[in-house]
Structures are given as structure tokens and as C-alpha cells.
């Protein structure tokens, strides 16, 4: 063995050990940073007055003007954890919360949600990879349905239940995974259309494997367009950045749809807005 193998192929080569330690160290640091974020920011927070944003940007005149503009249009904000899943988490929370008081919209959505798994299986997703996420998602959807349009007490109780489920890592992440799969399914079903949005030489399927299906991958316009089209839900995104002007620009997805979900975008992150 000593003849043909270099020293590091034995199990205690020094050079190899030091490279392992460095990688492990970086990963450990990353995990610690992630955990730090986790511990300070809930997956989905409580309702807060928009004035909390004013405090955040006290010394920033560009953002301050925009917060003022936003305050004229919205009363509350609900923050989400900035973990790369925030668009999906914010969207699903805000929409399910809306369905609590909109029985008609719920009935429409229920049919779309119920049929969504078949679309994924037909696209070639193995049944066993989709099943559990679908069931968790439908369980939460059905809980909303049982109480939609009920008495004030019932509405309060189901809102609290939603809030609790969205703050349980398991439930919350399973819902995020399922929305990622619906988004991927829509992109692949309409791949001719969505190919135009993808920069570089990647195919739609490659894009889905790399940018949509993995957790923690941030969402871009293409994710929002695909998800809002797949579920036929109008989303209005308010953009707050360092761009010119004092207004927070609105962008509706799909174009022309009545927005039922309002999100605030600040570079790299989505929170929920309430009028």
C-alpha cells in the first residue's frame, strides 16, 4: 500500500485533515449565523404598526420619504424571517389569512389546490416526493375552509391557529416546499413562455432544480409571476429601495389582476402589508 498510495490516502493524512477542518469551520460559522437570525426573528411575526418602519429609517431621508408614502396607503406590516423563503411564507400566510374572510375565493382556491398534486405527478415528480408536502398544505387549507366566513370568535381562533402553524418550523417549511413545487410545476408546464425570463443558457427544468425547488433560494419576479398564475391569485408588491422619487412603486402579478395579497419588497426581502 505504501508503494502506490500517497500519504494522504491513509486515514490520517495531515494535509487532508487541515482542509476538512477549514470547511467544517466555515459551515459551522454559517450555521451559527443562520441560527442567530432564527432566534431573533420569528418565521412570521405579529402585526405591527407602520410607524415601526419610520423608526427603522429615522436617519435615512431617502427611505423616510418612501415610508411616509407607504403609511398613506397601508396601516400595518407583518415581518417574516429573512431566510430566502420569505416570499413563499409571506404569500401563503397573507393569502390564507385573506381566505378566512372570503368564502367565495376559498371555494375557487380549494379546487385549484386540490388538483395541484396531479399536475406535479403528471410532470414526473415521484409521488412519494410530493405526497407529504401536499397533505400538510391541504390540511392547513381545509382548516381555513372549515372556519371561513364563521363567527367573529371562530375567525379569531382560526387566525391564531394559522399563526401558530406558520411559526412551527415543520408545518411552515412544508407549506413553503409545496408552494415551491407548485411554482416549479407552473414554470415547467408553460416552459415556452417562461424560458424568455431565464438569463443564460439554462433550461426551465434546470432553473427549477437550482433556483425554485431548493429551500432558502430567494425569489425573483419569475417565481412570483409563476406562482400567482398557477394559483390565480393577484399579488401587489410594493418596492421600497434607493431608487428616485418619493413613491413606493406598485407592481401587480399577474398584470391587471385584483390584488388580494400585498407585500413589501426591500432589497432581498418580503414582508406582508395591510391596508
Amino acid at each position: 500500500m505504501a508503494d502506490d498510495a500517497p500519504s494522504s490516502s491513509t486515514f490520517a493524512g495531515n494535509s487532508v485533515d487541515s482542509s476538512i477542518n477549514q470547511d467544517e469551520l466555515i459551515m459551522k460559522q454559517q450555521r451559527e449565523i443562520e441560527q442567530e437570525i432564527s432566534e431573533t426573528i420569528p418565521l412570521v411575526g405579529d402585526l405591527e404598526s407602520l410607524q415601526t418602519l419610520e423608526k427603522e429609517y429615522n436617519e435615512d431621508p431617502v427611505y423616510m420619504l418612501k415610508v411616509k408614502d407607504l403609511s398613506a396607503k397601508y396601516k400595518y406590516i407583518r415581518r417574516t424571517r429573512p431566510d430566502g423563503n420569505c416570499f413563499f411564507r409571506a404569500f401563503s400566510y397573507a393569502y390564507l389569512e385573506h381566505l378566512v374572510t372570503d368564502k367565495q375565493e376559498y371555494e375557487k382556491f380549494y379546487e385549484i389546490a386540490k388538483n395541484s398534486k396531479e399536475i406535479l405527478v403528471a410532470l414526473g415528480f415521484p409521488q412519494f416526493t410530493v405526497e407529504d408536502f401536499y397533505e400538510t398544505f391541504m390540511e392547513v387549507v381545509q382548516r381555513v375552509g372549515e372556519h371561513a366566513g364563521g363567527t367573529l370568535d371562530e375567525l379569531g381562533a382560526i387566525r391564531q391557529e394559522l399563526h401558530d402553524k406558520f411559526n412551527k418550523q415543520g408545518y411552515s417549511d412544508y407549506i413553503v416546499v409545496y408552494l415551491r413545487l407548485i411554482t416549479s410545476g407552473q414554470l415547467q408546464t408553460e416552459h415556452d413562455f417562461y424560458q424568455n425570463f431565464i438569463e443564460g443558457s439554462r433550461t426551465v427544468t434546470e432553473f427549477c432544480r437550482q433556483e425554485v425547488e431548493p429551500m432558502y433560494k430567494e425569489s425573483d419576479h419569475i417565481h412570483i409571476i409563476a406562482l400567482s398564475n398557477a394559483l390565480k391569485v393577484g399579488v401587489r408588491v410594493r418596492y421600497m429601495d434607493r431608487g428616485e422619487g418619493s413613491q413606493v412603486m406598485a407592481h401587480d402579478f399577474p398584470e391587471g389582476a385584483k390584488p388580494l395579497v400585498h407585500l413589501l419588497y426591500r432589497p432581498g426581502h418580503y414582508d406582508i402589508l395591510y391596508a
Binding site: T129, V130, R180, R209, P214
Partner: peptide, 10 residues
């Protein structure tokens, strides 16, 4: 561009 872990891998 490398393929990453996602919950639909196996």
C-alpha cells in the same frame, strides 16, 4: 449551476 439538495431529491 450544480444540482443542489431539494426536498424532491431522493
Amino acid at each position: 449551476s450544480a444540482e443542489r439538495w431539494s426536498p424532491v431529491q431522493s
